[in-house]
Design a protein around this nucleic acid. Structure first.
Lengths: 95, 95
DNA sequence: CTGTAGCGCAACTTGGAGGTTGCACATGAT
DNA sequence: ATCATGTGCAACCTCCAAGTTGCGCTACAG
């Protein structure tokens, strides 16, 4: 599909994926197996989320030896910032 | 559910719903029947999209006589602006 | 009061998202 | 050479989103 914006929003709609973005932002890089320790699901499920994020252009991967390390793309880092702003914006508004 | 941010992103992930936001931004208000003329689907489908947008807090409705008029909330109007910025941002980046 | 225009509700179908399990393959350690 | 670790692929299940059709109710017009 070529609905770039739609893919990005679709990727961001899932809380697990937003959490992955947060972790990658803190730690720089991570493997699917590492992230599995942080999320209540199997490695394969995490891998699917990472694939979705990669399709949306928010994450990129590089194979190093027998592990595959993921990191945020520039677009992904920008969205991590926007997510912070949006959360604060929502909390302000809630009262 | 209480994943406010997730609901917003989920709502924005659908191109038809983004289009509805655009129309409401241009015209101020519209009914489901009016919007049906602009989208390749039935009135009930449009009504569902409007309900999704309302759940996400992007749109609100008011019944006037026998029609129900929808308009953007403040949050919806802000997102209409952000969508414009994002589209331009994406186009710049594409080259 | 009868017709018709606009809505809402409910049932149903279909496709895809999110998750699991099982297995095969590659790579580093012993 | 063998074993363990990390990955990828594929099949499968379940649930929800998106859309349709059909029907019944409300409200304005004649």
């Amino acid at each position: 599909m070529s609905d770039q914006l739609g893919m990005v929003f679709g990727a961001l709609a899932d809380p697990s994926r937003r959490q992955v973005i947060g972790y990658l932002s803190e730690r720089g890089t991570a493997t699917a197996t590492e992230l599995t320790g942080e999320l209540p699901m199997t490695r394969q499920a995490v891998a699917k989320h990472l694939a979705t994020l990669a399709d949306a252009g928010l994450v990129e991967s590089e194979r190093q030896g027998r592990e595959t390390r993921y990191r945020l793309t520039e677009a992904g880092a920008e969205w991590d910032d926007r997510l912070d702003s949006l959360k604060r914006h929502l909390e302000r508004r809630r009262r």
